[in-house]
């Protein structure tokens, strides 16, 4: 097959589409925000925003909804990134929501605060009157998301109402809303897990160290490896192991499972993901069972 001189690389296509979407947000909304989790998808969004708006400033702040259970590496990374790009960061803490609203803090061994993030996010949207929130969700993450719009209208309660969902045609995005409604915008909707990694490789984008293989003490919990941290309760008969692991998402320390891996570079991660696909027709490798794509980023579940 001969290449046409006008053939356009798929990563260039995805990048251009995402930049176009980010600029539509800038053009259509008065108070947009970029939801920043410190994960690879939101770091990719920041990289795309630099391409979309430099030499100007971002027309939106970065907003981090902080559960208080972050990996320290991720917070350090976040602060260094903000220093480097000189953009505004807003942090709102789930901790404060729990206090203000007199909510029952979650208890139990792993005590996840994920589901509480949604409250903090809605409060933050109200506080700053955000009319659009840019997020890093992708359609390949789960079946239910496969029909999510790029511009997804939410009612006053942050809910996804099927009647508010608009047909999305060509590359025309309708962001008109009433007061109180807001739009979640997903510029990398059409990217897969692998596309993001290939882009990170090509663009040489730095990520928090927890994405790459490192040795760490982990609790073995229901067959999963959970990082040992002050946020989980360790009991006498718990099994603690030291393993070479990496994380696929940067959710809370207490509910993000580590996977055993030797992948210390982006190339090696891509190789690992490729190997988790069926390698030959019909021949599956059960022992190697994991998939990047099937894994939902819990942080985002709280957000979106």
């Amino acid at each position: 097959m001969s290449r046409h001189p006008y053939d356009f690389d798929y990563l260039d296509y995805l990048e251009s589409e995402a930049i176009h979407i980010l600029r539509e947000v800038a053009g259509q909304f008065e108070r947009p925000a970029l939801l920043f989790s410190g994960g690879k998808d939101s770091i990719t969004l920041v990289h795309l925003a630099l391409k979309a708006f430099r030499p100007g400033k971002f027309p939106f702040p970065l907003v981090h909804i902080d559960t208080g259970h972050n990996f320290p590496e991720v917070l350090q990374f976040r602060d260094a990134l903000i220093d480097r790009i000189g953009e505004r960061l807003i942090v709102r803490k789930v901790e404060d929501t729990i206090k203000q609203k007199n909510l029952e803090p979650p208890k139990g061994k792993l005590a996840s605060r994920n589901f509480l993030q949604a409250y903090t996010l809605l409060d933050t949207i109200e506080e700053f009157e955000f009319d659009a929130c840019i997020g890093g969700a992708r359609r390949d993450e789960e079946k239910a998301r496969a029909k999510e719009r790029i511009f997804s209208v939410r009612n006053e309660f942050g809910e996804w109402d099927p009647r508010l969902q608009r047909p999305e045609l060509w590359n025309i995005y309708n962001g008109k809303i009433h007061k109180g409604e807001n739009v979640r915008v997903f510029p990398i909707s059409n990217w897969t897990e692998l596309d993001v990694w290939h882009y990170i490789l090509r663009e040489n984008i730095a990520l928090p160290a927890i994405y790459y293989a490192h040795t760490r003490k982990c609790l073995v919990y229901e067959g999963q490896l959970v990082a040992v941290s002050p946020h989980i309760q360790i009991e006498p008969d718990d099994v603690i192991v030291e393993k070479t692991v990496r994380f696929r998402t940067v959710g809370d320390m207490n509910c993000t499972a580590a996977i055993e891996s030797q992948a210390r570079t982006t190339e090696e991660i891509i190789q690992e993901i490729l190997q988790s696909k069926i390698s030959e027709r019909g021949a599956t490798r059960i022992d190697d069972k994991f998939s990047e794509a099937a894994m939902e980023d819990r942080k985002k579940a709280g957000y979106f």
Binding site: S276, K277, I278, T284, R285, D288, K289, S291, E292, A294
Partner: peptide, 13 residues
């Protein structure tokens, strides 16, 4: 998807 080896092992399971 299946024959082009685009399915992950856990999806297949």
């Amino acid at each position: 998807l299946y024959d082009s080896e685009s399915i992950f092992i856990d999806q297949l399971q």
